[in-house]
Deep mutational scan, measured.
Amino acid sequence: EPLWIRPDAPSRCTWQLGRPASESPHHHTAPAKSPKILPDILKKIGDTPMVRINKIGKKFGLKCELLAKCEFFNAGGSVKDRISLRMIEDAERDGTLKPGDTIIEPTSGNTGIGLALAAAVRGYRCIIVMPEKMSSEKVDVLRALGAEIVRTPTNARFDSPESHVGVAWRLKNEIPNSHILDQYRNASNPLAHYDTTADEILQQCDGKLDMLVASVGTGGTITGIARKLKEKCPGCRIIGVDPEGSILAEPEELNQTEQTTYEVEGIGYDFIPTVLDRTVVDKWFKSNDEEAFTFARMLIAQEGLLCGGSAGSTVAVAVKAAQELQEGQRCVVILPDSVRNYMTKFLSDRWMLQKGFLKEEDLTEKKPWWWHLRVQELGLSAPLTVLPTITCGHTIEILREKGFDQAPVVDEAGVILGMVTLGNMLSSLLAGKVQPSDQVGKVIYKQFKQIRLTDTLGRLSHILEMDHFALVVHEQIQYHSTGKSSQRQMVFGVVTAIDLLNFVAAQERDQK
């Protein structure tokens, strides 16, 4: 057995438009009618409502009807409940999964919650491996369901041993009777949507819809739904939504950006999952974080739909894509998950301010006199920076000697690579993860907040409520011999709460 199987392995699926269902090699399930009293909570997966979006479509000038398939009504709160249950049931049916076995899954959280929910009911041990950027709410729900959680670096490539995929496979090879159901490759993922989600949409719309818009992560949702719609409703256009920084969209030119990270969760990847059939997507749109969270908040405030950030991405694209539809036509959007997962993220004004998705003037509360002053007023001194090749031991000596707790790590040209902190280095040394002679590049981390000289002290204040420091950066445009230009970030300084307090105190003292 291989040590790991690539999540982007070539698909062996034989589905073709027009091929009889009787030739399918898979076990198919028909939607079942729910009894009045459910035998367990797993029976509350599927049969989610279709809700008309009344205000947002009109606000953006849509002539067509805009409908939302509300997947956050599933038992675990997301569309991923469907595939989690289906993968477990299919693994039980073919004898792969037996009582007492362990389920391991690399996930952005929602599939993990679905699997942990099913594992709690069915009696399996469950280990979820997820990147650090995923919300604390997801972690809390997983723990409450009895799952064990392993976190991995957000910026690790999918084929790196440190990625959530790599760590999951390492655990599988170490733990007896453990299984990775593997949402990236498992046919049960798109089949769950082909058999149930798509049929529900067709039934709820009486077979009449002209466009379907869905955000894409593993691709199982859009693949399964689109294949069924292509068979039953061939005139329906399928629109895929991919965040900026991901590479799922086609044509490839759409993916060209210097951005590699994004805040919206559960969609987009740096590889093409095996289950994603991009041939059934008629057109791709890219979405960005700001519009995703703005539209998610709009869905909550104006439509009462308590959905997550990827739902915002989907609707932001839908109001663009559906401009081509006329009166009497219908566009369906998939709202994948609930706001429950993001209470401390985009639902929080403070978080939105820190990330730059909300401006101070958007909030009406009274601010102190210094709130709208610029960061450049602080008069920061030149920063202490270190090269990635310097040793951890030497870096600790320098920081202690100069009285700093942290320093930016830059390359020879001064471009920011990340940050090192005294606390992080000492804990890594004590844990045996690094040696004093190791290069400081081994303990770089990139989960820090950046701020510009033109940003306000109010925004800085919000950042420092949650973080010990902020890195002050400025952009530099560099022209190359080819005539092309590129933008790079340079370090201007490091600012802490002490710097802000000293500035405010000094100004008030001078005024007296």
Rank of each mutant, 00 (worst) to 15 (best):
N255A: 06
E291G: 04
V472T: 11
F469A: 13
W351G: 04
L306A: 07
T261L: 07
H462C: 09
R278Y: 06
K449V: 05
K355T: 04
K320G: 08
K283M: 09
F404V: 07
E290W: 15
F503D: 04
L501C: 10
P408A: 08
D242L: 04
R400L: 10
S481T: 15
T391S: 11
D438F: 13
S287M: 08
E253G: 11
D438K: 15
N255T: 01
D510S: 09
P243H: 08
F285S: 10
K512I: 01
V495P: 15
S481K: 14
E377C: 06
A318S: 13
R330Y: 08
A413I: 09
A407N: 01
M343W: 01
D411V: 08
H462N: 07
E365C: 11
C392N: 07
E412R: 06
T279P: 13
N424L: 15
Y479H: 01
Q478I: 09
I498C: 01
V317S: 01
V386Y: 09
R509S: 08
C331S: 03
I463W: 01
A470M: 15
F503S: 06
S287A: 15
L363W: 15
R350P: 04
N341G: 04
T257M: 12
M425C: 15
F295I: 07
K442F: 11
V409M: 12
Q511G: 14
V495S: 12
M466A: 09
I272H: 11
T385W: 06
L417G: 12
T389W: 05
T364M: 10
Q507R: 12
T391P: 14
Q329R: 10
K359T: 14
S486F: 11
F295Y: 10
I300T: 07
I239Y: 08
K367W: 13
Q439E: 07
E361F: 11
T314R: 01
A322C: 08
G245M: 04
G245V: 06
G240L: 01
G308P: 04
E253V: 12
S428R: 04
K286C: 03
G483L: 09
H480I: 09
V241C: 12
Y479W: 01
F404R: 01
I238A: 01
H468R: 11
G441A: 12
K345Y: 01
G414M: 01
A296S: 08
A318G: 12
I398R: 07
V409L: 01
P368Q: 07
I272A: 01
E250W: 05
G312W: 10
E244M: 01
L358P: 08
Q478V: 06
I267T: 08
K402N: 12
T482C: 09
L248D: 01
V332F: 01
V415P: 03
H394L: 05
I416Q: 05
Q326D: 11
R452C: 13
E244L: 03
H372E: 14
T261W: 08
K402H: 11
N424F: 15
A296G: 11
S485K: 01
D242A: 04
Y479C: 10
K345A: 05
E361V: 10
Q450M: 14
L417A: 06
M466V: 12
I398W: 07
V339I: 01
Y445Q: 08
L358A: 15
K286W: 01
Q354C: 04
V281R: 06
K286H: 05
A318T: 11
M490F: 12
I272R: 09
H394S: 07
V275K: 03
A413G: 11
E360G: 12
T261H: 14
V410T: 12
Q376Y: 05
L464I: 14
I300L: 06
D438V: 12
R350D: 09
T395A: 12
R488F: 12
T482P: 10
L306I: 05
L417S: 12
V315C: 09
T385V: 05
A431H: 01
P408M: 01
R278L: 05
I238L: 04
S486G: 09
Y262N: 01
L429W: 08
E465V: 15
K359D: 03
Q259G: 10
Q450D: 12
E365P: 15
L358V: 09
A470T: 12
W284K: 01
I451C: 01
V420C: 15
R374V: 07
E263V: 06
L325E: 05
V275G: 01
Q439N: 11
P436R: 11
Q450A: 09
G268N: 03
A470I: 01
Q478P: 13
C392F: 11
V420I: 12
C331A: 14
